[in-house]
């Protein structure tokens, strides 16, 4: 693996809210990297720092110590405007409650990050439609979010997260509002985007969903306390009947 395969690197990242005796440490010296083709799940009890890790990794909040490096860029070194550009071009967020804009169609929702980046809507529609096709919703492009099921809305959100070749997907409990079968479908989509060369962080408290990741890191009190890495070849496959 080369350095260019590393999409995201957290280097000794700490995050503290407040000062003095009332200060709360949300992250304490976290080292974590995500490579191309890798899905990393983050698990931990409420308050363990999972969501903070995601907002720091996504450049939404600067850490109080340590460095976040996205595709080779040190976020602390970037002026605000360049940071915003990097966020738009490299990072895609997926939230539990989808965060789609209700007055825009699925296609317009997916086009939006590109349009914010200066693309004309006409030019943005083609990659947006490509992204919708990837999540098998090309035929729903003109539907409004209210016409789509929860699972379909989350797939639109995944399309928006990867549109225009954005390579790092940051998902915070993306299956939290979905039933078990629909949640599995959404994870299958997320997994296939990662297998196609993206990278991702999946924050979840659901063990069965975290199991889709290549690596699972466990957070406790803002620290990574352990890690589970799936072995490349599983002995169980030998049981598969022809």
């Amino acid at each position: 693996m080369t350095d260019s395969d590393i999409l995201l690197q957290l280097d000794g990242v700490s995050m503290q809210y407040g000062r003095g005796e009332t200060a709360i440490t949300a992250l304490a010296g976290v080292d974590l990297s995500v490579s191309r083709g890798e899905l990393v799940a983050v698990m931990g009890a409420s308050g363990s720092g999972k969501s903070t890790l995601l907002t720091v990794a996504g450049g939404l909040t600067p850490p109080t110590a340590g460095e976040v490096i996205v595709e080779g860029h040190w976020l602390s070194q970037l002026p605000a405007r360049q940071l915003a550009t990097l966020r738009r071009r490299s990072l895609g967020f997926v939230f539990q409650d989808f965060n789609l804009i209700p007055s825009l169609t699925a296609l317009e929702n997916v086009s939006l990050p590109l349009e914010l980046d200066g693309w004309t809507s006409k030019r943005a529609h083609r990659p947006a439609l490509d992204a919708l096709n990837i999540v098998e919703l090309g035929d729903r492009a003109q539907h409004f979010p209210s016409d789509l099921s929860g699972g379909q809305q989350q797939r639109v959100a995944i399309a928006r997260a990867v549109v225009g070749g954005r390579s790092l997907i940051l998902a915070d409990e993306p299956t939290g509002a979905l039933d078990s079968t629909t949640g599995e479908l959404v994870l299958r989509m997320l997994r296939s985007r990662v297998d196609a060369g993206a990278g991702g962080i999946l924050v979840t408290h659901d063990a069965r969903h975290a199991a889709w990741a290549d690596r699972i890191v466990f957070l406790r009190d803002g620290r990574i306390v352990d890690e589970s890495r799936a072995s490349a070849v599983t002995s169980l496959l030998s049981g598969l009947p022809a």
Binding site: M43, A207, R208, A210, A211, W212, A213, I216, F218, D226, E227, S228, R229, A230, S231, T234, L236, L237, L240
Partner: peptide, 14 residues
């Protein structure tokens, strides 16, 4: 938990 999750990852892959 780590051991259980590793089993779950392998089963899911399979």
């Amino acid at each position: 938990r780590t051991a259980t999750m590793r089993t779950l990852q392998e089963l899911t892959r399979t």
